[in-house]
Amino acid sequence: MRFLALFKKELREAVPWLILATLLLLAISWFMIHMKAYDQSRWHYNAISNGKVIDTYMIFRTDIMLESAVLMFFTSIGLGLSVGIRHFWVPDFTRTWQFLIHRSATRSLILSAKLTAAATVLLCLSIAWLLLAGYAHISERVIVPPESGIVGLGIFYAYLGFIVYLGTALCALTTARWYTTRMFGLFFVFIMFMIILSPTNFTFVFFLTVFFLAVLIIQIYETFLQKEF
């Protein structure tokens, strides 16, 4: 019950950010999908004519949800960052301690409630993404529906948003000065992004992110349990 109360409290604090991110994602992506569908249906392939080789660029086409996927990528990073700041940095833990005045809870319980709330928030964002993909599938304006790979990538981006959240949390928890190693958590996540964005082997990338996730969770857990508040 104490976990549930804490979880609800953390979720309440993150919900405004989730609503903002979801609305942004849905509204802009809806517009982008319609624009692209319009282009797709009026696509004239002017350069294609009998007796000629077809330029390969005419055949390699972008997905209907490509621009939306780019937006989802940045939205999930932004959401992870803002929820991380909200949970661990600003306004520090003052609200958490107030909430716990008449509720005794272990540090592990507080931390797990925060992490579960953040995971739920990013899960909700990925559900919004799936709804958007569903809309692109059933929309009469779209000729070629989104590819399953790009829909899956959107969910993966929500997971990356959670790793950004962990990086932010580590930065907030560490007691180092800002000009020394305080920002190492986010720098660590930045390195992860640099490594994973250009490769094409998803399995390799996924296991790499699991490694980064594990390192961050261990660091956060240790720091949170030992920190003097």
Binding site: W43, Y45, I48, M58, I59, F60, R61, T62, D63, L66, A69, V70, F73, V144, E147, G149, I150, L153, F156, I196, L197, S198, P199, T200, F202, V205
Partner: peptide
Amino acid sequence: RAIYPDSRRSIVVP
């Protein structure tokens, strides 16, 4: 097929 979607393309024959 890169993870960042900007360069992703599919073969679509008209």
